[in-house]
């Protein structure tokens, strides 16, 4: 049985391949390590932005920003449920606007709750690295946020 299953898998290798959205997040290199989003911090004014930028959009000077790991937890500013899919997606899927404590506000897919009624403006959400879409038959790996479950997720960053 095990043999026949593995030969079946060899006939369909494409689905196993994954593609990653580059430069947006850090994938854990070892078990126990946590993923995080990669932002940029200005060494002059202290501004933190996500996704990362090369130069500070406030200072407008020729001094590259520094890459910084961002908090894994943030707050949900708003949310919706896409009932009609974009190409590569399966509807329905949830999307949210996220605020991180360092300052960035951005749009993310929301995982962990399929029921939109479980979402609330202001609730705490945490980062998850997961399959987010399909491109040309391959899984695309990216970031999502999910509601923090009571008693789980801990206090660690």
């Amino acid at each position: 049985m095990a043999n026949s299953r593995s030969s079946e898998a060899e006939c369909q290798p494409a689905k196993k391949e994954t593609r990653v959205l580059e430069g947006l997040f850090h994938l854990p290199a070892s078990p126990g390590e946590q993923p995080y989003l990669i932002g940029s911090k200005c060494s002059v004014c202290g501004l933190v932005v996500f996704p990362k930028r090369t130069f500070c959009p406030v200072c407008e000077i020729d001094k590259p920003m520094d890459e910084v790991p961002l908090s894994r937890k943030g707050k949900l500013v708003s949310y919706t449920c896409a009932r009609v899919p974009s190409e590569g997606m399966t509807a329905p899927y949830l999307m949210g606007t996220i605020d991180l404590p360092e300052g960035p506000r951005f749009i993310s897919l929301i995982a962990g709750e399929q029921d939109i009624n479980a979402l609330k403006i202001g609730m705490e959400v945490e980062l998850l690295i997961d399959k987010i879409a399909e491109e040309e038959g391959h899984d695309l790996i990216g970031y999502k946020f999910q509601p923090v479950k009571k008693g789980q997720g801990g206090d660690h960053k």
Binding site: Y79, V84, P85, S86, G88, Y93, E135, G142
Partner: peptide
């Protein structure tokens, strides 16, 4: 879905590849 994705390319690639669509932007 193809029209929605084409429209979504009026943003940064990272966003349009991640299920972004304009109606969700305005809905939020």
């Amino acid at each position: 879905a193809k029209s929605i994705r084409a429209l979504a390319t009026c943003s940064e690639i990272e966003l349009s590849r991640s299920g972004f669509q304009y109606v969700t932007y305005y809905a939020m």
